[in-house]
């Protein structure tokens, strides 16, 4: 397999992120006889290697569809998605994309530990227990590795899904509202933990979220989408120093950015055909 260009190669090969480019992608879904939903219209987004981008937008504006295209799960009608120089399908074959889905999709018959290691087993690689323990610790579930998903709360399940997404040391992480079911406090502390990991790993990440705070705190750039048809409404760079801990969230710079994104989001909602 050819090496992915733009790779930031670290000694332990972990610090690797690939560029994500989605170029004028359009996608229309057929609802029924002669009824169509224009889910995405000429959407372009990009993330440099190691960059963290966040996508916010009203419900139904096509965020999940965009993520599914980036993951190679959905074929766009026109336009293309590239990870490095490769189409997503090629990267998934190399087991280098990590996805945390909106509906976690954990397997009820496996323990937390086995769920986290599942991508490795599915990919036919030998599961690395030490890495699993490390990831479980990262998401605060060290004491629950033997539990089954149904014994966990909604937020804990999402955390398992996050850990699972990182199991294969991906060069691209795609997160579809992975923190949706978490309370604010857990969410914040997890965000801070995540930042630490991301700065270590340097994995290119696309995060879909409904929380403007979260987008501003985590991302290097925030895309604001409008709906019907789903399109990019605004692109707001977040120039805040890292690491961004709790104190950052009270600074004027942070609050101004939150305000800017919120206003864009409101305008986007107004401009979304009702």
């Amino acid at each position: 397999m050819s090496a992915v260009p733009h790779l930031v190669v670290a000694p332990d090969s972990r610090n690797s992120g690939a560029a994500l480019r989605i170029e004028s992608v359009s996608k229309t879904f057929r609802l029924g006889r002669g009824e169509f939903v224009p889910a995405l219209d000429q959407v372009s987004i990009s993330a440099a290697p190691g960059e963290f981008i966040a996508v916010v937008g009203p419900s139904g504006c096509g965020k999940s569809t965009l993520l599914r295209i980036a993951a190679g799960l959905e074929e766009p009608d026109s336009g293309k998605a590239l990870i490095g120089e490769q189409p997503p399908e090629a990267v998934t074959k190399e087991h280098r994309i990590g996805v945390a889905f909106q509906d976690h999709a954990l397997l009820p018959w496996l323990s937390v530990a086995e769920n986290i290691m599942l991508p490795a087993r599915l990919a036919g690689l030998s599961p690395d227990r030490a890495r699993m323990m490390e990831l479980a610790k990262l998401v605060g579930l060290s004491d629950f590795t033997k539990a089954r998903p149904k014994q966990l709360s909604g937020g804990m399940r999402q955390r398992v899904a996050i850990a699972r997404a990182m199991m294969l040391e991906p060069i691209l992480l795609l997160f579809d509202e992975p923190f949706g079911a978490l309370d604010l406090v857990t969410r914040r502390s997890l965000n801070i933990e995540m930042q630490r990991i991301w700065s270590e790993l340097g994995t290119t990440t696309m995060l879909i979220t409904h929380s403007v705070d979260e987008a501003v705190q985590l991302a290097d750039r925030v895309y604001v989408m409008a709906s019907r048809p789903g399109r990019i409404f605004a692109e707001i760079p977040i120039h805040l120093d890292r690491p961004r801990d709790r104190r950052v969230t009270t600074t004027t710079a942070f609050l101004n950015l939150v305000q800017e994104v919120s206003v864009a989001l409101d305008d986007a909602s107004d401009q979304s055909a009702g």
Partner: peptide, 16 residues
């Protein structure tokens, strides 16, 4: 979601 997971991690048909 199971199919999506299998696709995304590049699982073979047998593994999935």
């Amino acid at each position: 979601g199971y199919d999506d997971l299998a696709t995304v991690v590049g699982a073979s048909r047998q593994k999935s």
